[in-house]
Amino acid sequence: MELLCLEMDTIIRARPDPNLLCDDRVLQSLLTIEERFLPQYSYFKGVQKDIQPFMRRMVATWMLEVCEEQKCEEEVFPLAMNYLDRFLAVVPTKKCNLQLLGAVCMFLASKLKETRPLTAEKLCIYTDNSIRPQELLEWELVVLGKLKWNLAAVTPNDFIEHIVRRLPLPEDKLALIRKHVQTFIALCATDFTFAMYPPSMIATGSVGAAICGLQLDSADQSQWGDSLTDLLAKITNTEVDVLKECQEQIERVLMSSLREGRQQQQQQQTQRGPSGKGLDELDQSSTPTDVRDVNL
């Protein structure tokens, strides 16, 4: 008799659980506890002397790239940024240790959320071996202590399904909308402006921006009844004005990112010359935005 092992190298995911997603109490509980996991201070104005907002952006961008390249689950990056901000809100940190902190936060978030977490060795390689696994593990303990071991923070990603399923959206567009929302959430996590916003607001604003961006709101005005923003605001108990402002902010960050990207692209083109392979590399992007593979 032949024995076959059908275990494969695929990551097993639980199916979406209707008991969790369709029960209003879950959303209400998320809204109640989310504030507990916000960083306590706008730390650039007090605690931090050596590091500046642009450095947070540098480390955040690097973390996002690592998460993408390693195909981490979507929530790993926003969760890691939550740890980073909460740590920086209480511990004065030198800029030369910021990348180590970023690596530690990814290490922790990945272990909390993934079936096959990132290893310490891999993360150290991504810092170009400027830190050693030993140091990563030591600082893991320090960071855990400062976070009081409260790692299961609420992230904007926790709200996506709850919001999306309460909106009258065409079934065939849902996957695309989710991707766009995830991209916006990741973008928000790279920008310090959003660090103190409640995750539900970032999620709601991102859903709004995604639907507007995909022009799903203008296709059939009548189905929305109230305007989209009003509906969104109701779902997460956000004030309409605040939500509008948040959505506009997301769109602004998006625009400036695109502008920056364009400039950089031009720079790279001039540096490498027309035969450079820079653009090909850039095109081989993975999560969270392989939207272009989706047939529109």
């Binding site: 996002l64 790239e65 990112s257 502008r259 990207g261 950089q264 850039l282 095109d283 935005t289 272009r292």
Partner: peptide, 9 residues
């Protein structure tokens, strides 16, 4: 969306 990714890289 292609450009967002480029911007972040």
């Amino acid at each position: 969306h292609k450009r967002i990714l480029r911007a972040l890289r």
